[in-house]
Design a protein around this nucleic acid. Structure first.
Lengths: 200, 200
DNA sequence: TCCTATATGACAGTAACTGTTAGAAATTAA
DNA sequence: TTAATTTCTAACAGTTACTGTCATATAGGA
């Protein structure tokens, strides 16, 4: 089960070369950041290490932050969630979607991703950018809940429930860098707790 | 019931003058932002309009964002939450704390605050900065939950529950600009839904 | 009233971007 | 293969947020 690129259609040499170079730049940048710190590393240094111009850097990534943040996981999770059978409960569907998505990440890539996440959470500038991911995820879950319950996606109660679910997942992500368990196991525990009710 | 300054101790003339000027700058800056847009408004323009130097602006606010974001509400909410009687359920305590905090805001200030919130949510740079407020709020709630349930604040289940509560509140904040109801009413509805269980 | 501490303004400098332009490389057509 | 066209790239100048330094001014205390 290999991880397919999101947009297959444009498969010219130029596009593939660009994509490959883009990943290389991300890799080099992360190494530099981890070694010398985020602020201390300039885009000029990244450009020099990757042997591209600063112009090209900004054509690849709109901001310095995006060189760390950009990945293709969101649409994959989205697709996985939509692909879940309709008779699953919303939380069950989410649990399954998470599991499938994380299975796509190979085990050597997994430690790197974990390192990246820890770094994102500890750099204020990068951590801040995760808001929109949370908001987007809430939208996603709200739509899934709406589809499975027959209510509107902008229904207040649907949105509150979606927010509670994502909020719980959020704490898992935060706890991850210091936890010894795997992501999917912690997510599973959190969602199971929600399914069982909110009591302590 | 007037809104007391957070740090009473340093009440020198210099300090009061500084604080008053700081609020004036915030007010002028928000007007400029609302009129011309966040990015289009430079710090130079704000400084000129407020008749201070750019140096002074940055001595007041560490970043351009903070001139919009900085306020004293967080410690007040914190104090209100701590002041709730111990026999209230966690969610009940939170509802009461919210109600008390919002009562402190006078009605003419309230529309201004609402305008500000809508603006913060629509400017990516400002919206991004709300993450840490969410994380901080989750910590706050986790501690409150821990204190009321006799469990540790870093207990996994405590944190998941705190995350779910804050996640639900988050959707309320997001819905606020387009809602006709008041904040405290919507928060109350959301928290009541959580208390009743997570079903739809 | 003098002395000290702190706030302020002016200045120079850095780094993240933005926009433009010329040239190189890849795609398409002949 | 060659020619025409499109698209990617490098180089450059310019703007703005932000940092650090230094001289000056102003408030608080003796």
């Amino acid at each position: 089960m290999s991880l397919p690129p999101v947009q297959e259609p444009s498969t010219g040499l130029r596009e593939r070369k660009r994509l490959r170079m883009l990943r290389v730049v991300q890799d080099i940048a992360l190494d530099l950041f981890l070694a010398n710190g985020y602020e201390a590393t300039t885009i000029q240094q990244i450009a020099e290490a990757a042997e591209i111009s600063e112009s090209t850097f900004f054509r690849y990534f709109p901001t310095k932050e995006d060189v760390v943040l950009q990945d293709d996981l969101d649409p994959i999770l989205d697709a996985a969630l939509r692909a879940q059978p309709a008779d699953l409960s919303p939380v069950e569907a989410l649990r399954a979607a998470f599991r499938q998505t994380f299975e796509l990440i190979s085990s050597d890539e997994r430690s790197r991703q974990r390192e990246r996440l820890a770094f994102v959470l500890e750099v204020p500038e990068l951590r801040a950018r995760t808001v929109d991911q949370f908001f987007g995820a809430t939208d996603l879950v709200a739509r899934a809940l709406a589809g499975r319950s027959g209510r509107a996606a902008d229904d207040f109660e649907v949105r509150v429930l979606a927010g509670a679910i994502i909020g719980a997942c959020m704490t898992v992500v935060l706890a991850l860098p210091t936890a010894r368990e795997d992501v999917d196991e912690l997510l599973d525990r959190a969602l199971a707790q929600l399914q069982a009710g909110l009591e302590l």
